[in-house]
Amino acid sequence: MSGMGSGNVVLRGWALLAGLLAAAILVSLAVGQIMVTPAELLRGLMTGTGPGALTLRVLRGPSTLTAVGAGAALGASGTIFQILLRNPLAAPDVMGFMSGAGCAVVAGVAFGLFIPLPILAALGGLVAAALVSGLSFHRGGRQSPLTLILVGIGIGFFASAVSSFLVIRMPPQEAADAQRWLTGSLAARNWGHVLQVFGLGALLFIVLALQVRAMALLELGDELAAGLGARVERARYGLICTGVLLAAVGVAVAGPVPFVAMMAGPLGMRIAGVKHPASRLTAAAIAGATITVLADVISRSAIPGLQLPVGVMTGIMGAPYLLWLLWKEVEAGEV
């Protein structure tokens, strides 16, 4: 990895990352059942009229931007857990936090609770995280990262089963929509969703920025961090909360999209060639946004006349990555 390389290499990495996101957004706006040329998009943006304007304002603008916001939140969330547990498998999707958030949202809808979706998602995510953490203590009082991941997978199974159970109780049309949403879906997003994901996301990114120093210390190991003046437990729980809330923000607008959170961190780090937590988080956010936008375009246009949920595509993209990760570790004799 070129993390220690010269400033030029790093700069090139960031440029590449940003360029990929810009390209993904452009493709997402242009491609669909009706193709819209970049020129038309530009004209729509400038004059506010023509097919470009309609595409931007109604058809593809809101869902593309929601994808950007949700992907960025999920990417940063995944990286927080990957850094805290020092394991590429640790991510809110693998560890069941997102299924927990999704389950809470479905429960809220099924029981007709008038609680905003982000709050439901946050509650569900936090309960799932608390359960994972609580159930992972071995008798010795320590949690191993691998136990946390496995217990998290179990919590994810349970939350998904409860969600499916609740979906059955809904009226047919609502049930079909809920099923789709539970796969992860960006269909029919509006500017309210964009505002929500960017507003809450920005707030959490500020909170995260305040925690980055502590995170860098934690990365050195608990004892060294404590020696350098970090309040280890407090810092860790603070970061876990931020991570879970970021994931919940993504889930609230896009459903529990699988594998974005897990893939974004390593991908962003590799492309940008960075190592410091702050840079890794930024890179992961950009990579997460790019992955989500691309998955959305592909799922919208892979089969003509049919909009697959975005989660189907991130599943198809993410699963081979996970297999490759495991294969690599089998070869290296780790994990």
Partner: peptide
């Protein structure tokens, strides 16, 4: 157990995503 379980998670996710895509299409 971790490796085997995660390999299962990945294979499940991949195949069930493809099954969903085919059936929905």
């Amino acid at each position: 157990p971790v490796r085997l379980t995660l390999a299962g998670v990945a294979i499940n996710a991949l195949l069930l995503s493809l099954v969903s895509a085919i059936i929905l299409s």
